Computed example of a mutant assay.
Amino acid sequence: MDEYDWAMQEAKGWLDVTVVWGGGRRVVEVYDPVRLAQSVASDVARIGRFTARSLPVVPSLTPENIESAISAIADESFFEPG
């Protein structure tokens, strides 16, 4: 993505990211705290629950924050089965 695309994603507050490693592939939803709170409140009001799988939350959606979070959780075996 170019600088404009990243600015739009950062303003949006969430992004689906596909993480690929030797053992597989997983899509994670990356949120900033403000957008996460909005999504939780909206879904709970609308359908009575909020559900998300693989949900890293970063201070803001920048390539650096996302890469740092994915790297850190990979080091914690987040992407390993079981």
Score class of each variant (00 low, 15 high):
2 D>W: 02
25 R>M: 08
79 F>K: 10
14 W>V: 00
66 I>C: 02
59 P>F: 00
28 V>Y: 03
18 T>C: 14
79 F>Y: 12
48 G>W: 06
54 S>A: 04
72 A>P: 08
81 P>E: 11
33 P>C: 02
62 T>K: 10
81 P>R: 05
82 G>A: 14
68 S>H: 13
45 A>C: 09
2 D>K: 04
55 L>R: 09
62 T>A: 14
51 T>E: 07
33 P>N: 06
16 D>T: 07
12 K>A: 11
21 W>R: 05
36 L>H: 03
16 D>H: 12
68 S>I: 11
79 F>H: 06
16 D>G: 08
61 L>K: 00
76 E>F: 12
4 Y>N: 06
54 S>W: 11
68 S>A: 15
19 V>N: 10
22 G>P: 01
7 A>M: 12
24 G>I: 04
66 I>K: 01
3 E>L: 07
5 D>P: 00
21 W>Q: 01
63 P>F: 02
52 A>M: 08
6 W>V: 07
55 L>S: 08
9 Q>H: 04
29 E>H: 15
8 M>R: 10
71 S>R: 15
64 E>N: 04
81 P>A: 05
45 A>L: 09
43 D>E: 15
75 D>C: 00
35 R>W: 09
40 V>P: 12
46 R>I: 14
81 P>W: 07
36 L>N: 01
11 A>V: 02
27 V>C: 05
59 P>A: 03
5 D>E: 10
10 E>D: 11
28 V>M: 00
3 E>R: 09
73 I>C: 10
61 L>P: 01
2 D>Q: 04
82 G>P: 14
77 S>R: 14
68 S>R: 09
31 Y>L: 03
78 F>S: 08
65 N>S: 02
62 T>I: 13
80 E>A: 14
43 D>Q: 15
75 D>L: 01
10 E>W: 10
80 E>K: 14
33 P>D: 05
11 A>T: 05
27 V>W: 01
39 S>E: 13
5 D>Y: 01
69 A>H: 07
44 V>A: 03
31 Y>P: 04
